[in-house]
């Protein structure tokens, strides 16, 4: 009987400890999405059930093309981030030792202490028509007049890669850190070149880090609002802008809710396809 009492207390303790997480999930994730779902399938006029807001997405080319463009740009941003971050992470994890390792890692981290808004404005100062780079090009005689570097897809890409770099570097550094140096040495010892060792030993080991980094960067890029709007301007055509427009400008909450849910479902679908294609499972990557 005493044992049973102790067990019951233990259970209560466990539930109390899980409470913050449970509340967070329920109040901030599940409830709002449930609300979105209700909004998106309710006709605002008579309160009847309807799928018209979802049909709208697939029948109006502007909407689904915007989504497609957002997804393709995000995938591209993810790949670029991976290509740039991998050597950085390898350098931090394997080439540097002790103090310098911590310092370089911190140098990657420090820009992220500043808000994303401020960092994006920083890029605008550099890239706008009257900005630093434009002025330098004119001063050095490389350009005759002011050069506008903002409001192109390339600028959006630059902003996306920059703002998600850290989220790729951190998981990569931690997986590469766990790769014992003797595996790399064995790779060379048995006759491997740099490329062989990277491709056959380092990358297979780093796959979980690569996949989790890619998922994070892809989701962040897809859901990014600030960077495309500020660096891409009016024509950036990012899907999150469509959602914003529906909710705030057009006051069409039903359509906005449908878009919000579609963003969640379609992006999850893309991640799932990506995992399938790379032969990874979600639990393996996160565990």
């Amino acid at each position: 009987m005493g044992n049973l009492g102790a067990n019951a207390r233990l259970k209560l303790g466990l539930w109390l400890l899980l409470m913050p997480l449970g509340l967070w999930l329920l109040l901030l994730i599940i409830l709002p999405h449930f609300e979105l779902l209700i909004f998106s399938i309710t006709d605002p006029e008579d309160g009847a059930f309807t799928f018209e807001f979802y049909f709208e997405f697939f029948t109006e080319p502007l909407y689904w093309r915007t989504f497609l463009r957002t997804a393709v740009m995000s995938i591209l941003a993810t790949i670029l981030t991976l290509i740039i971050a991998f050597p950085v992470a390898f350098y931090i994890a394997k080439m540097l030792k002790g103090r310098s390792k911590g310092i370089v890692f911190a140098m990657c981290l420090i820009p992220f202490w500043v808000s994303e808004l401020v960092r994006t404005f920083g890029w605008m100062i550099l890239l706008r028509e009257s900005g630093v780079i434009s002025n330098f090009l004119q001063w050095s005689g490389l350009a005759a007049g002011p050069v506008e570097l903002l409001y192109t897809d390339a600028t959006i890409m630059l902003g996306l890669v920059y703002s998600s770099m850290l989220f790729m570097v951190v998981p990569l550094v931690s997986t590469l850190d766990s790769l014992d140096d003797s595996y790399i040495e064995a790779g060379y010892d048995l006759g491997g070149t740099n490329w062989n060792v990277i491709r056959e030993i380092v990358i297979p080991h780093a796959i979980p880090g690569i996949v989790s980094g890619c998922i994070i960067v892809f989701m962040l890029s897809l859901g990014n609002y600030l960077t495309p709007v500020l660096l891409g301007g009016k024509d950036s055509l990012w899907f999150t802008e469509q959602i914003y427009t529906q909710f705030i400008t057009r006051f069409n909450w039903e359509q906005g809710s449908a878009f919000g849910l579609l963003l969640l479902v379609l992006s999850s679908l893309i991640v799932w396809l990506g995992l399938k294609a790379s032969g990874q499972s979600f639990t393996k990557t996160m565990g």
Binding site: D180, S182, Y183, E185, A186, G187, Y188, D189, L190, G191, G192, T193, E200, I201, P204, H205
Partner: peptide
């Protein structure tokens, strides 16, 4: 090291787990 006619059995063997 990759061009030497020498191979090494490492302390923890370093068999590639992948």
């Amino acid at each position: 090291p990759n061009k030497r006619p020498v191979n090494m059995v490492f302390q923890h063997l370093a068999l590639f787990p992948t």
